[in-house]
Amino acid sequence: MTGPKLEGDYFRFFGYDRRLALDPDDLQKRFYELSRKFHPDRFARMPPADQQYALDATSILNDGYRILRDPVARAEYVLKQEGFDVGEQRSKDVPPELLEEVFELNMALEELRGGDASARGALEEAEKKFIAMRDRIDGELAALFLEHDAAPGRETLQRMRGVLNRRRYIRNLVAEVQKELA
């Protein structure tokens, strides 16, 4: 039985170099091709070792697809592989300006929360603002992906990590304001 080695990273498994700017359509195409290739039905009459290989490959394929198709998960995956702490629950390395900014945004949101129905318009404004911020961050992220792919380096990854941290905060603010509006 020949097939990609099951160790190694998701990028290699999908036949990519390790790059962050992926074309979602191409990724999907590869996912379908590999899914067909490793479909357990095709291994039903093969030796048990091959059946197991197909099962393991299918599982890696699904995990890998889930990670690679989501730009944020994809970036976090690369950061983890490069030894960056991702998703750590401390403030180490979070720039004070970001904390100040998020604190102020939360304060503003809290003020609107306590208000009556008339606050709704302001909450909707806040929602728009947070979503616009998130979109801007996604734009920054896409630019960093290209920068990384052109010349991979820790400095770019470091900045990417900062952008991802900020995105988490803004994503939470979006969720908070939407909960309030629901």
Binding site: L99, E100, R171
Partner: peptide
Amino acid sequence: GMVGAPECGDVMK
């Protein structure tokens, strides 16, 4: 002191 944990969205002053 202003600290935070981006993972949970926490900010603490």
